[in-house]
Structure formats: C-alpha cells, structure tokens
Design a protein around this nucleic acid. Structure first.
Lengths: 354, 354
DNA sequence: TTAAAATACGGAAACGATTGCGAAATAATG
DNA sequence: CATTATTTCGCAATCGTTTCCGTATTTTAA
C-alpha cells in the first residue's frame, strides 16, 4: 500500500531527471491543462484543487521545464551581456548593476567576453541570432569598425542596448558617462596644476569614448592657449608590455610630457609601471589623471587622481530599461538617444605637488 | 515577378522574429524532416538538396530555435557559473578561463553573483533546478553552512563542480589551489623576515579555504616555536569600512602584530587603508603577505607580497572536465576528489625591509 | 421553475525542432 | 529480366508547456 505521503515507486528513478507536468497530472488524476492552470494560479481553478496540486508538485519535486515554456511563450527571461573585458573594474561594476535588477525581476544573464576582438564579437552576435536571449546589452570591442553584425542583430528585432562604448549607427538607446566634460575637466585640472605639455593615452581611435574624451582634452588644451602636439596623443594596443614600452619611449624622449590624461585605467597603470623604470617623480615631474573605477586608487604609489564612472548606475539603468521594454513593450521604447550619467573626479596625489 | 534572389514578400514581416524550419521547408517544397536533415548534414540527403537548402536558409536568414532544440534534445549547451563576488580579480580570471574553453566548445555561460549571501545562493540554485543549464560550476558564499540546496542540486543529477571555496560534503570533483602549503610557506616567509607575532585575517571561519589556509598558518607558527594567540586571528566581515576598523583596532592595541597573513586580497587592501591612518611603516613595523590575484600588487605603496592562485588554469580545468562529462559521459567522471593546482608566491616590498 | 450566468475542469492544438519508420525511385546484383 | 540494395525523401510522433475552446455542473437571476 502506498501512502499518500510517499513518492510512488514508478517515479523514483525519473526524479533525478525531473518529473513532467503530464506525469504530475497523471498522479493527481487531473488533466495537464488543469494542473498547469493550478500552478499558475488561474482563476478558473478552485482553491481546493490548487492546494492539492501545489502539495503534490512539491512532494514530487516538480520543476517546469524552461525550454518548453520558452518555446511556447517565445521568451526566455534571459538577457545577453557582451563586454570587451572582464578583468576590469568598470565592466565588473556595470555587470553587478545589471544583475541586481535582473535578479529582482527574475531574469537570467548570459555573459560573453569578446576580449576586444571583433571576430569573437561577430561569432557571439551570430550565436545570439537564434534567440537564446530576449535582449542584448553590449559595449563594443575596441577593434569594431565594421558593424554589419550589429546591424543584423538589430534588424532581428531583439531589443538592443549599448553602454560606454556605443555604436552610433544603430538607432537605439545608449548609456554613457559625460565623456567630453569629464575629459575636459580632467585636462583643465592638469593645466591648473601647471602642466604645459599633456599627453593623451588611448586604446583605439575608433572607439566612441576615445573620440569624445579626446575632444574634451583638445578643447581644454586649446582653450588654455596650449598647443596639442601630435606626438602627445598616444594610440596604445592590447598588450600591456607593449604599452609600457610605448609610454616609456615617450617618457624618455626629449619631448616628454609633464601631464598625462589616460582615457582608460589600464593605461594609467601602464604609465605607473613605465615611470617606475625611470627617475621621473609623480607628481613633481609628471602629473597623471585617469578614467578609472578601481577601489584602490588611494593605495597606489602615489595615489591616483581618477575620473570615476557611475558604473553600477549605468548597469542598473540598462537593465531597468531593457526589462521594462520586455515586460511592458507599450510603456517603454528604446528610442535613438544617448543618456548621459556624469562621472566624478577625485583628486589625489598624482596631480598635486605638495 | 519574384526573382530567386529576392525574399518573398510573405516572409518579410515575420523575418524580424525569425523564420521557422517549417516555413523554410514550405518555401523549398520539401518536408521539414528533409530540411532538418539537410541542415544537419545527414547522409540520407543528396548533396544537391543540401546545397539548395543551405542556400535558401541563408537567404531567408534562418536560425534554428534553440528552445525547440533544447526541449527535444534535453540539453542546452549552457553552463551555469555561480560566484560569490564579481569585483574580484581571482573570480574574474577564473571566469575568463571557463569562458575560454566554453567558447571553444560552443557552450554558453549563465553567470550568477551571490554577493556572499546564502539566501541569494539558495534562490539561484533553486532557479537552476528547472534545467536551464546542463551543468553547474560554483564557489560557495562565505555564509554557506546549510548545504541542503546544494545537496538538492546534486541529487537532481546535474553535473556539479566546485572550485576554490568548495563543499566537501558533496561527492564531486573540486578544484583548488594548495591552500595549506601556500599559507604555510607564506607564514614561514614572514617568520624568516623576523616576524614574531603574526595575525591571520579571514572573512569566514566556515569557508574551506579559510580552514586550510589557517591550518597552514598555524603549523608554520608552531613549527617555528612561536605561539598563535587567539587575538591574532581576526574574523572580518563583508563591510570594507568595518574591516578597516577591526584591523585598525588591532593595529592600535598594545598587543599589535608585526606580521599579517591575509587569506583574501580585500583584507590586505583593508589593512593598507588602516595602516595609512597610523604611523606604522610597512615593512619596517609590519609585514604583510596576502593571497591575491591583482595585477598591480607591484604598484601599491609599498608593493605587496602575494600568493597568486592559478585562476585562469582553475577555470579552464573546470570547464574542460565539465564539458568533457557533458559531451562524453562515458569517458569522463566527476569522481569525489580534490584536484590541487599550486599557487605562486611573489615576494615584494611589503615583507622585506631594505 | 426555468433560463442565464458563473464555476471548474478536460481535450486538443500549438510552439519548432529531431528522428524512427516507411516508401518510392533508382542502382546493383544474379 | 527479376530481385535485392541503396539512395532519397515524407509522415508522424515526440519533447513539456500554455491556452483556446468546449462542456458539465452548480449558482444566480428572472
């Protein structure tokens, strides 16, 4: 005799793989449709039946198959996130922001790292074309010039959002920080501290953030009556070693800068490494400011003046808008606009001689 | 007249949402089964037909629906990764390692951050019970003592793997570094540098890594004839501010240590912050060594002696084993064992007085 | 008391792919 | 030429849900 509280033997072996709705219905002597409705708390089902169904579902450890559900409903409650780099405080914080909202709303995150490689980016985007995710939020790689793959993704109809390194050609919403103003203010700060020859360090000329930050840098320089020498804008690469060498060469040259605006954190750190191999003193001989989201700028030697992006907020806003669009398509729209959230400059020892 | 190179009008509106196999078959005047086999390069289909099908699939921009496929095949080519913290160099590197192998093998990654919170961990694990992923690799949160949710996940039959912070009770494969030896060697190094009273900093007594590293620390101390005072083992928490205060209190006390073994990076950094508020000099008055995977240990003030874990390798090995198990279940087995990959100690200024 | 409305549930189709089986048409064999 | 293999493809079931209908039973209204 099988007690009602025991799991029937016939299910014991299949339990590992999970029980289906149909089997659950069979056990309850109900139709699958009824069980489905009961579990989804439909008004068509009596409270009594609901209780029974829910209890049995728990007893048999029932979990609805997500693929069947996704197939039927044509949505997966999954968002794909594509970033160019993972070992990076900015992107990690953005991810945390996205995930915070996603978890609240019951959304899952597929995460992809392109390693700043367009080819990888294209492969990943093509993979996403089959509808594994309901939406995509991304920051393009530094090598992305051809954007046909992004165009295709956009035309596929998936809600698509950009942040930080955006793709202007795609008519959707983008979240960035006030790149121009921050770079302008940061450069101005260097000038106020006495810098006459300021170098601009970048990882790629093509990047949206590079262009904007460079524009801010240029305007500040010109406004101060200084001249922006071509040799002072240094286009770096992916290899840390090479970057250190490039920066070293600049520091050893006769025409060396007395100030540096690093458009990304890694280049400021490369500069620190390069400086270590010289007699140059920071901030006395060289002042440095950098876009950076590291928590330990204050522990560096010397502590680093930073332009900190609102990374967490950017992530949260991306997720809010995207999930809003997914859950209430009528109320939200991914219109072609750039939303700017300001950065914060924190002045530390690397720019002020005591 | 519709040219063969044009997309028939009737599909133009549905193209955004994607075309189905059935529609593709209709257009080709073939049965869905034939089209499916053609696309999957079945021997049953003539080369001629295959060409036609593939060309038409490309023309109509066909992409197979992953949910239908997953439902039918009962697998999703997706691996779930659960980590306790994202803004953390170690975990970021592990993730990169996992993703490297996963991308090679065409696997996707669902990533979850528990923020060191057991309740979140439980929710996430329960979400995974419905088969969204084919396998799970995780590092448990520092607050995890009740492991019933992990047990349930394991019993569900999903291949499950642990790394770094492992759960000994679950009989599966775990990847860690040589926590005991590294802590032993690191502590011994402090002793050799003259430390007599060494403090051990941890984030949770329950963690596997804490226990092992503490054991190594203790053995090194006892072996050297020193005594391990209870006040010298400091159990820190999640809040950076509180940790700095805890460490500050220790540093200001009469009974202050002359050496510190930090079992995780964030506690070494908190120590640096705390030291900044005192007159204490590193390494003259206090020497510090820490488990850490930061790339800028050399840029800290002073540069930090580190025990660096093989994070990337750990990630790669996890992914290799897991995907091996998924693709060739007969050849791979997740036997109950702990695989150890050694760390590397890099001695810097924080432990050697010049 | 009878018609209308509300309640509670079952049957069956649908989502989009894969695959076992059957069956033509063609090729190979005796 | 008759028979058997081989090639090439179609039919239909299946995976596990959800949901549109239909219907029997009960309740409410007239």
């Amino acid at each position: 005799m099988i007690s009602i509280l025991e799991v029937p033997k016939k299910y014991l072996n299949t339990m590992a793989a999970g029980i289906s709705l149909k089997e659950l219905a069979l056990e309850l002597k109900l139709a699958p449709s009824t069980v489905s409705r009961a579990l989804n708390d439909s008004y068509e089902i009596s409270e009594e039946t609901k209780k029974k169904v829910i209890r049995m579902a728990e007893k048999l450890n029932y979990h609805p198959n997500q693929f069947a559900r996704s197939l039927r409903e044509n949505k997966s409650k999954t968002i794909a996130v594509i970033i160019p780099e993972r070992i990076n405080n900015f992107f990690a914080q953005v991810m945390d922001g996205i995930e915070e909202i996603a978890q609240e709303q019951g959304y899952h995150l597929l995460v992809y790292n392109t390693h700043e490689d367009v080819d990888r980016e294209k492969k990943i985007v093509n993979l996403l074309l089959n509808g594994r995710a309901d939406a995509v939020v991304m920051s393009v790689s530094s090598q992305t010039s051809d954007i046909s793959h992004l165009q295709k993704l956009y035309e596929r109809g998936l809600p698509l959002l950009f942040f930080d390194r955006i793709c202007a050609e795609i008519p959707t919403t983008k979240f960035i920080t006030n790149d121009y103003e921050s770079a302008y203010d940061g450069t101005k700060h260097l000038i106020q501290q006495g810098c006459k020859k300021i170098a601009f360090l970048m990882i790629s000329k093509e990047l949206s953030i590079t262009k904007e930050r460079y524009r801010g840098y240029l305007d500040a320089i010109n406004e101060a009556g200084l001249t922006a020498e071509p040799t002072m804008s240094l286009n770096c690469c992916m290899s840390e070693e090479e970057n250190i060498k490039l920066i070293s060469d600049m520091l050893w040259s006769d025409n060396r800068p007395d100030g540096i605006m690093a458009s990304v954190e890694k280049l400021a750190l490369a500069t620190y490494q390069a400086v270590k191999r010289t007699k140059i003193r920071i901030p006395e001989d060289l002042k440095i400011i950098s876009f950076s989201n590291t928590a330990i700028a204050g522990l560096l030697n010397p502590s680093l003046t930073t332009i900190t992006q609102p990374a967490l907020t950017i992530g949260q806003e991306c997720a809010k808008l995207l999930i809003g669009k997914l859950t209430k398509p009528k109320h939200y729209d991914l219109i072609n606009q750039v939303i700017t959230i300001p950065s914060k400059i924190t002045i530390r020892s690397s720019t002020v001689a005591e």
